[in-house]
């Protein structure tokens, strides 16, 4: 076992883990932050996307120990303490950017990284292209794309 410490959604956390523990396992099983999902477990579907030091990454392909000292943001870290949704979450609600919801946390974390990389004025082509690493099996992506475009604009306000 090895000690690991990091900051998750602004809170300092520590744990004692086997070196083979994936970041997504650490988040879900040790910290009980089950908003980050495991879909394919092969770094393709994007359900496990979190931000490591502000940059989107697949938590199923990252060891917890690689994140020693890092700042992690998960879907649970986006809403305000009172429960007011982040503008991107609100846009997914407003535009019905989900059906079963399994991919949604990863979609939203990926969407925020698209905004980080490309700014707040996103066109449909950019969004579809940059969603390459996220798979949704319900929606056909249409409302997800609309939600991201609207959410990105709302974040600028």
């Amino acid at each position: 076992m090895a000690a690991v410490s990091m900051t998750v959604n602004g809170k300092a956390v520590t744990g004692d883990v086997e070196p083979r523990t994936l970041l997504v396992q650490f988040l879900r099983e040790n910290l009980r932050l089950t908003g980050t999902h495991v879909g394919c477990d092969t770094s393709q579907c994007g359900a496990c996307i979190v931000h490591i030091d502000g940059i989107a990454a697949k938590a199923c392909t990252t060891l917890a120990l690689q994140c020693e000292g890092a700042k992690i943001t998960t879907i649970e870290g986006l809403a305000e303490p009172g429960g007011k949704l982040h503008p991107m979450q609100e846009a997914f609600r407003e535009h019905h950017g989900l059906q079963c919801g399994y991919c949604t946390p990863g979609m939203i974390m990926s969407a925020l990284d698209i905004v980080r990389r490309n700014g707040n004025n996103l066109d449909e082509h950019t969004i579809r292209d940059q969603l390459d690493g996220n798979i949704c099996r319900c929606t056909g992506y249409h409302n997800i794309v609309k939600a991201i475009e609207a959410g990105a604009k709302a974040m600028a306000k």
Partner: peptide, 9 residues
């Protein structure tokens, strides 16, 4: 290469 998250790592 890969997708944006893969390129980030």
């Amino acid at each position: 290469i890969g997708d944006p998250q893969v390129r980030n790592r």
